[in-house]
Computed example of a mutant assay.
Amino acid sequence: MAKPTGDPALIKQINTSIVLECILQYAPLSRAAIAQKTGLNKATVSSLVQDLIDRQLVLEVGAGASSGGRKPVMLMFNSRAGFAIGIDVGVNYLRSILTDLDGTMLQQLHHPVIDCRHDAVITAISECIDQFKQQAPDSPYGIIGIGVGVPGIVNEEGTVVFAPNMGWSQVELKHALEKLYQLPVMIDNEANAGALGEHIYGAGRPYRDQIYVSAGIGIGTGIVLHNKLYKGSSGFSGELGHLSIQFDGRSCSCGNQGCWELYASEHALLEAGAAYGYHDIHAMLQAAEQNKPHMRELFHDIGTYLGIGIANIANIFNPEAVIIGNRMSLAAEWIRPAIEQAVSQRTLRFHHKRLLIQFAELGEQSAVRGAAYYAIEAFWTEVKSGH
């Protein structure tokens, strides 16, 4: 009986994936270096690299250093083979970017959201996409996909099941955008996108276990454990903004009482600031810089409430770092001392000992960068699978 053999097409697909992953991770490097790192023989590497060059996914970028003999030809992946679009949908803003396949931001748009009904928001999203499609440079693969972060619960089909601060329920956002553009569309919770953005491009790069706190109009959290987004059994994890921190507290739009986001979000800050005639976070930051004591106190109170929630997170997850992003990261200077004080007082010392509290390196762009990365990651997955 003949011995079973591997399907040659499948073997080629697996080896192509190995070679491409090596180039993505270590470039610039030579064919010989790829063979050394992967254990594949040089002839196989040469053939697979040529195939990737022919598909315009890999470029030869000149000669490298030689240890004797002919200088090796160095390889890079072609970051301009295509472009990704990232969208961050906020309750009161819409941020969108165009990036290359390296995640480098090439263009960005930012619009206030006046009407947050889903039809109006989808129209605003499509206007951004249309503009990027017109402006994107020529490339072999064009726009390779669209990633969208939304402030709500998203299921595996890309439907926004519930976004209380937007008034959305069962909005089939992925289906709507794919129908409009015939492109791959990835939809996720905005805080997950922010966690991914910081993990890949920002302050979260050094950490395997981290929690990203998206403090905007509401509060969401993205959980990265062992370098992977933790999504929970149904994909709905991270709704820590709806942890109860006041057992008999105010009613929340989610149906709960005393939710963390009612006391520690940008919305909570704006509600408190309205009593002093402030209706914009930038005006409130300016007042704090002018040493107006009532505004310093408001930021201190918000920082304390943020710290209370972060202490709960630290006691549950024991992360290496908690990264605070979205709009409240603009107030880092004024809220950090209160956050650190509350965390120090309320976190078990075993958890607090090595906990780092940081603010998002990408500022307000964590989620939109992460959203674009969803599209990039999906493209490379398709390429590695032989499509």
Results as ranks from 00 to 15, higher is better:
M1S: 11
A2V: 14
K3H: 14
P4I: 12
T5E: 08
P8M: 14
P8D: 14
L10H: 03
I11S: 06
Q13P: 00
I14H: 06
I14A: 11
S17R: 07
V19E: 04
V19M: 08
L20G: 09
Q25T: 15
P28T: 05
P28C: 06
A35W: 09
A35Q: 13
K37T: 15
K37F: 15
N41H: 09
K42P: 06
A43T: 13
T44P: 02
V45Q: 06
V45G: 04
S46Y: 04
R55W: 09
R55M: 15
Q56I: 13
V58M: 12
G62Q: 04
A63T: 15
A63G: 11
G68C: 04
V73L: 08
M74F: 05
N78F: 06
S79R: 08
I87A: 07
V89K: 02
V89A: 00
G90Q: 03
S96I: 07
G103Q: 10
G103V: 14
T104W: 06
M105A: 10
L106G: 08
L106K: 03
L106H: 03
R117V: 13
H118V: 05
H118R: 03
H118F: 07
I129Q: 06
K133C: 14
K133A: 15
Q134M: 08
A136G: 10
A136S: 12
G142S: 10
I144L: 11
G145N: 12
I153P: 00
I153S: 02
G158T: 12
G158M: 10
P164M: 02
P164G: 01
G167P: 01
W168T: 04
S169V: 00
V171E: 04
E172Y: 10
L173S: 00
L173R: 02
E178W: 02
E178P: 00
L180T: 11
Q182K: 13
A191V: 05
A191F: 04
A193K: 07
G194N: 07
G194A: 12
G197E: 04
H199V: 04
G202F: 03
A203L: 11
A203G: 06
P206D: 04
R208N: 13
D209C: 01
Q210V: 15
G216I: 05
I217C: 01
I219D: 01
I223K: 08
N227P: 02
N227C: 14
K228N: 12
G232M: 03
S233W: 10
H242N: 06
H242E: 00
S244A: 15
I245M: 00
Q246T: 07
Q246N: 14
C252D: 02
G258L: 05
C259Y: 00
E261H: 07
Y263F: 14
Y263A: 05
A272H: 11
Y276P: 01
G277V: 12
I281Y: 03
M284Q: 07
M284V: 13
A288R: 08
Q290F: 05
N291S: 12
M295C: 10
R296A: 13
D301T: 15
T304G: 11
I308S: 06
N318G: 07
P319H: 02
P319S: 09
V322L: 08
I323Y: 00
R327Y: 10
A332T: 09
W334K: 09
P337F: 14
Q345G: 05
T347V: 14
L355E: 09
F359D: 04
L362Y: 06
G363V: 02
A367M: 02
R369A: 11
A371T: 00
A371G: 01
A375V: 10
I376V: 15
E377C: 07
F379T: 15
K384I: 10
